[in-house]
Lab assay of single mutants.
Amino acid sequence: MLDDRARMEAAKKEKVEQILAEFQLQEEDLKKVMRRMQKEMDRGLRLETHEEASVKMLPTYVRSTPEGSEVGDFLSLDLGGTNFRVMLVKVGEGEEGQWSVKTKHQMYSIPEDAMTGTAEMLFDYISECISDFLDKHQMKHKKLPLGFTFSFPVRHEDIDKGILLNWTKGFKASGAEGNNVVGLLRDAIKRRGDFEMDVVAMVNDTVATMISCYYEDHQCEVGMIVGTGCNACYMEEMQNVELVEGDEGRMCVNTEWGAFGDSGELDEFLLEYDRLVDESSANPGQQLYEKLIGGKYMGELVRLVLLRLVDENLLFHGEASEQLRTRGAFETRFVSQVESDTGDRKQIYNILSTLGLRPSTTDCDIVRRACESVSTRAAHMCSAGLAGVINRMRESRSEDVMRITVGVDGSVYKLHPSFKERFHASVRRLTPSCEITFIESEEGSGRGAALVSAVACKKACMLGQ
């Protein structure tokens, strides 16, 4: 009897593995994704193909990295998701002549009506938060230079001027797309009239992360975010950046690689679950690469896999709870928690219980395998993109072996128990001629924006502006 049951459990697990095998990517698959990513990057950089390229390769006008001589107080704003952060950054000489960066910050959550109302409502709310922060720190009387981390696709015309191309991540505030974001912020500050600010720089969160990590390690020339969304930036040779005049030196390019796949480059790798996630998203047909990796989508992918296993009578005796059938019910943090389970399955059992399920031991094991399959594919897909960037940098610099540091931020990278190990191992397999160091950014977005502002202020002083 026991043997029969054991055989049935083994057969069930084997069927589960057959279904989950769809998520496995072979090294040849990853090399294919990497080569296609490089081709799209090239198209994004070139003037004649930029418009139709899915990977936009947006110039950021960040050319210099901090040298350690900029000092002063800077205000930093960070808008990239449902939370908005205001930070005071003091850049100065530390002990023994070292450079020191001290920060104080406060988080504000953005109400739904500000995210989806008008641009005026959104930026009025942001300036209200700045006003509140300055009151708390008794700094209303000071006109501070301000660095703005704005983590949406922007076409820069200068370091302090950028046109919002399109909202992502659930934002829909009308009247912002096609307009200068810094102008919208300046107008809102003017409307309030109770404080003055000098907006000197606007950067993407990947750029802010790279600059913040450069402060720790001067070989950091790539910034990457794996959180709600997924994106990367890197220092490109100016001669390859056709959208900006000049051939000397390097400029940081914001790849906006989340949109890779929007022209069909990933079609052969998309599964039924991916198509369902895409169809029910706020932007169907867009940001397809990001939807395979980002935390906004990972939990939902797992939920759809679990429903398939229920329908195949391989999980929960073929019956799903009402909660499990509800879109968004299986949160991405559950994926991390399930994979963090120590082996007694308590954590998995508790999560499934909150979803109205009474799982068996085998159910718990199957749910864990589903989570591992989805998150491992995410790590491997992400590795193909980064390997594409790094191999490109090595080739354009004609280096036999390139040493490089990548600064990384984002909740999936930082909080998932195995993502970074799987990701690092896969990147290294795909970049055999590179020695890569990964560092995690601390308060990256805010500190990085302030350091970019410090560079901009120093330049302005040198130019006598």
Rank of each mutant, 00 (worst) to 15 (best):
V222P: 04
G147S: 03
A21H: 05
T149D: 04
E265W: 04
K90M: 13
D247G: 10
Y215D: 14
T342I: 09
L415C: 13
G318M: 15
F330G: 04
L307T: 15
S418Q: 13
E237R: 06
S263T: 15
N166T: 10
K13H: 07
I404V: 09
R358V: 09
S441M: 04
S109M: 04
V302P: 14
Y297H: 11
T228P: 05
S353K: 13
A259P: 06
M37I: 09
F419M: 01
G44Q: 06
G246F: 06
L352P: 01
L134C: 05
K190E: 13
E290Y: 00
C434Y: 10
M224I: 07
A11I: 14
R250W: 09
D247F: 07
L134Q: 01
T362E: 08
R7H: 08
R428A: 13
A6T: 09
E14K: 12
E216F: 14
T361V: 10
R191Y: 00
S76L: 03
E157K: 01
G385M: 04
M393C: 11
V101L: 09
S445V: 01
Q26I: 08
A21E: 11
D73P: 08
L165M: 08
V367N: 00
K346M: 09
Q286W: 06
C364P: 11
Y214W: 15
Q138T: 12
G264Y: 10
E300G: 09
R377N: 07
I366V: 11
T60G: 01
H380E: 12
S151Y: 04
D365I: 14
R369W: 10
D113T: 10
C461G: 11
K32H: 06
E265R: 13
C252M: 12
K291V: 01
E120D: 07
G264W: 08
R358I: 10
V412A: 04
D42G: 12
D42A: 11
Q239A: 12
L77C: 02
R275G: 08
V199H: 00
V71W: 15
G72L: 02
P432K: 05
T255M: 01
Q24P: 15
L276H: 15
E435K: 03
G388Q: 10
T376L: 10
R397A: 07
S411K: 04
L288I: 13
D341T: 14
V389I: 11
E52Q: 07
I439Q: 06
S383E: 02
G147N: 00
D113W: 11
V222W: 06
V455H: 15
M202T: 03
R345Y: 06
H137N: 06
S212L: 04
T103G: 08
G81M: 04
D113A: 12
A449D: 00
I189L: 14
D267P: 13
G285Q: 12
E221M: 10
N313E: 08
S281Y: 10
H317F: 14
C129M: 07
M402L: 09
E17T: 06
E319Q: 15
V244C: 09
V55T: 06
K458V: 13
V71L: 11
M381R: 03
I366A: 15
L309V: 15
V182A: 09
H50S: 05
K32V: 10
T437F: 12
L463V: 10
G318W: 07
H105C: 04
L25Y: 08
T116R: 06
L20H: 05
S453H: 02
Q106F: 07
G175N: 02
M8W: 11
S263I: 08
P432Q: 09
A282N: 15
R403T: 12
K142D: 07
G92H: 05
S69H: 13
R275H: 09
E40F: 02
E128H: 10
D365S: 09
L288R: 12
Y297A: 06
E216K: 00
E27K: 03
I404N: 06
E265N: 00
S54W: 06
L292Y: 08
Q465M: 04
L306S: 06
M238R: 09
V452E: 09
D365H: 13
L146Q: 00
H105I: 02
F419V: 02
E51T: 09
A173Q: 02
Q24N: 13
H50E: 02
E290F: 06
M34G: 08
Q465C: 11
V200P: 05
L430V: 06
K90T: 15
N283Y: 10
R422H: 13
M381I: 11
R368F: 09
S453P: 06
T361N: 10
E237V: 10
K136L: 07
L324M: 13
L20G: 07
A460H: 15
S396F: 10
R369E: 12
F150R: 02
S54M: 10
M224R: 15
G97T: 12
E245W: 12
I436H: 05
S433W: 11
Q337W: 12
R250S: 11
S100G: 11
P111R: 08
H380T: 13
S453L: 06
C230T: 15
D158F: 00
L146G: 01
M393F: 12
K296L: 05
K458D: 15
D3G: 11
D217F: 11
A11Y: 07
S433V: 12
K190A: 14
A232W: 02
M462V: 13
E245G: 13
Q347Y: 12
H218Y: 13
R429Y: 11
D341S: 11
V401L: 10
S360G: 11
A21Q: 14
N254R: 02
L415Y: 12
F260Q: 05
T437W: 13
E95P: 08
S445Q: 04
S426C: 12
T103Q: 05
A460C: 15
A384W: 00
R186W: 04
D311F: 02
I130P: 01
A176F: 00
P59I: 00
W167C: 05
I366F: 09
E312L: 13
Y297I: 00
V91I: 15
T332Y: 00
V222K: 00
F334P: 09
S127L: 02
F123N: 00
E322Q: 12
L276E: 11
A6K: 00
I189M: 01
L357Q: 12
E27P: 15
E312G: 13
L306W: 05
G356K: 10
S453K: 02
L2G: 12
C434G: 08
V200E: 06
S373C: 11
M115D: 03
G249N: 14
I351P: 05
Y289T: 14
D198G: 02
L307H: 08
R394K: 14
C457E: 04
A21Y: 11
R36L: 12
C382F: 00
C364F: 07
G162T: 01
L352Q: 03
E9L: 11
V335M: 14
E440G: 07
D113K: 14
L276T: 14
N179F: 08
S373Q: 10
M251D: 13
R7N: 13
M41H: 02
L79N: 04
E236M: 11
F316L: 13
K172W: 01
Y349K: 13
A456M: 15
G162P: 00
T209H: 09
S263G: 13
